[in-house]
């Protein structure tokens, strides 16, 4: 039983079935990968989990509580945090202020008292962008802005963290650092659902992987199993017949 359970979720946009009866389980304490070709429905699924998109069918369950009908901000307060594939940083605020917004919101429902400024600095340090804390995010390079989003998501002290292509815009060293950070985070009990195109990162960081194609989960298993799965190879590379 995962900490986050996506059960038979479907999303219909007009005549297009963007997500088709998808079920994914995201256990605590490890990284679960979600991969698939472009347009497979990965980001739509993230929007369903965070409440930005209402599903046409299915359930989202967090820690045994059904959240399918909860508003997005309520889900955030229950412990779902995310980053975005297309940057959604607060551009005119500084990196530190981005994190502060999340911390100051969390103070409303968190039981423990804490010093927002101190934690903000710690988080920025942790994701490796402390040196640009006072720079406005729209003046930052994309990679750094992604890390601001990551720090902001962590500031809500989530149970489940959804990362939508966090490595795009990062250079190789930064991607390595991200992998290290993911290990640290899951070691602390966090459940991570990772959408990523960087296959070495996915294979290295994930304990389980689900593969989405045309909105359907076509395979799930450990990285080793996924790499060997013929249907996955078909989805990514096409069959010999289709290619010709």
């Amino acid at each position: 039983m995962g900490l986050l359970e996506i059960e038979e979720v479907s999303v219909q946009f007009g005549g297009l079935l963007a997500v088709d009866d998808a079920s994914i389980s995201v256990p605590a304490g490890c990284v679960t990968g979600l991969i698939g070709p472009n347009g497979a429905g990965k980001t739509t699924l993230f929007n369903v989990i965070t409440g930005l998109q209402a599903p046409s069918g299915g359930r989202v369950v967090l820690d045994d509580v059904e959240v399918t009908r909860r508003r997005p901000y309520r889900r955030a307060r229950l412990g779902i945090a995310r980053t975005f594939q297309r940057l959604e940083a607060f551009g005119s605020l500084t990196a530190r202020e981005n994190v502060l917004v999340a911390l100051e919101m969390r103070r409303r429902w968190a039981t423990a008292r804490y010093d927002c400024g101190k934690i903000a600095d710690e988080l920025l340090e942790r994701v490796g962008i402390a040196h640009v804390a006072e720079t406005r995010v729209e003046a930052l390079p994309t990679g750094s802005a992604r890390l601001v989003e990551l720090a902001r998501a962590l500031a809500t002290d989530p149970k489940v963290l959804l990362l939508d292509e966090p490595s795009s815009g990062l250079d190789e060293q930064e991607t390595d650092a991200l992998g290290v950070l993911l290990h640290e985070l899951t070691a602390g009990g966090l459940a991570v659902l990772l959408v990523e195109h960087d296959m070495p990162l996915v294979m290295e960081a994930c304990s389980y992987i689900s593969v989405l194609d045309f909105g359907r989960v076509i395979a799930r298993g450990t990285p080793r199993e996924i790499q060997a799965d013929p249907s996955v190879q078909r989805a990514y590379l096409g069959t010999a017949k289709a290619a010709s």
């Binding site: 930005l52 997005p72 955030a76 945090a81 607060f90 005119s92 202020e97 917004v101 998501a153 809500t156």
Partner: peptide
């Protein structure tokens, strides 16, 4: 800060609990 955040990205605001 929350007001500016809401203007810059409503989607991100709600996902941090605004």
């Amino acid at each position: 800060r929350r007001l500016v955040a809401l203007r810059d990205s409503e989607a991100a605001s709600v996902t941090v609990g605004v």
